[in-house]
Simulated assay, not measured.
Amino acid sequence: MTTHPVTQAAMSSFASASDPRLAQVMTLLVKHLHAFVTESKLTKEEWMKGLEFLTQSAAITDSERNEFSLLSDILGISSIVDVVSQPVGGTSSSVLGPFHSHDSRLQPNGIDLTGDQAGDRTWLHGCVLDQQGQAIENAEIDFWQNADNGLYPAQDSAQDPHNLRCKIKCEADGSFNLLTIRPHPYTVPTDGPVGALLAASQRSIWRPAHYHLIVSAPGYIGLVTELFPQNSEYIDNDTVFGVREGLIVPFVKSSNTEIAQRYGLDHPFYEVRFDFKLVKQA
Results as ranks from 00 to 15, higher is better:
G115K: 14
S18E: 09
S16D: 14
P161R: 14
I205F: 01
H100Y: 11
H100V: 07
T114E: 06
P20V: 11
L213M: 13
Q202I: 04
E271C: 07
S85G: 06
N177R: 05
A260D: 03
P87D: 14
D148N: 11
V83R: 05
L42C: 08
H102K: 13
Q230C: 06
M11Y: 06
P108K: 09
S40L: 11
C127I: 02
P218V: 01
V272H: 06
I141G: 07
K169D: 11
N237W: 06
C127E: 05
C170N: 10
K44G: 11
D266N: 15
A217V: 10
R207F: 00
R203P: 01
A147C: 09
I181T: 13
V37G: 05
G222S: 14
E39T: 13
E64P: 01
Q86V: 01
G150C: 07
T180A: 02
Q86A: 13
D73P: 02
S16H: 08
Q261L: 11
P5L: 10
V84G: 03
L75C: 14
Q86R: 11
S72L: 15
I80S: 11
P5M: 04
F276P: 09
D275P: 03
S79R: 06
P5E: 08
Y263L: 05
R203D: 08
R121S: 14
F143L: 08
I205C: 01
Q131H: 02
Q134P: 00
I235G: 03
F274Y: 15
L33A: 09
T3L: 14
F269D: 05
A199P: 00
H32D: 06
Q155L: 07
T7K: 12
R244L: 07
S57L: 15
N256E: 10
N146K: 03
L278F: 06
A35E: 12
Y270M: 09
G97L: 04
S204T: 15
N146C: 07
G192L: 00
E140N: 07
P183W: 09
H212A: 14
E271G: 01
L198D: 00
D142K: 03
L129M: 10
P193Q: 09
A200G: 09
T55W: 04
L278S: 06
L28G: 11
A200C: 03
K44I: 02
Q145F: 02
N149C: 11
E271Y: 02
S255K: 10
L197C: 01
K41P: 01
G222I: 00
I168C: 06
S57K: 01
L22H: 08
S157H: 07
Q8R: 13
L28W: 03
Q145A: 13
S175M: 04
T61L: 08
V272I: 12
F241G: 01
V81W: 07
G115Q: 13
P193L: 00
T61K: 12
T3E: 12
A199S: 15
R273P: 03
M26E: 15
I60S: 13
G89D: 08
R182S: 10
R207G: 00
V188W: 04
Q86N: 09
Y186T: 05
D160F: 06
R165V: 01
S104Q: 10
N149S: 13
L265W: 04
W47S: 12
N149R: 11
H210V: 04
S72K: 10
E258F: 05
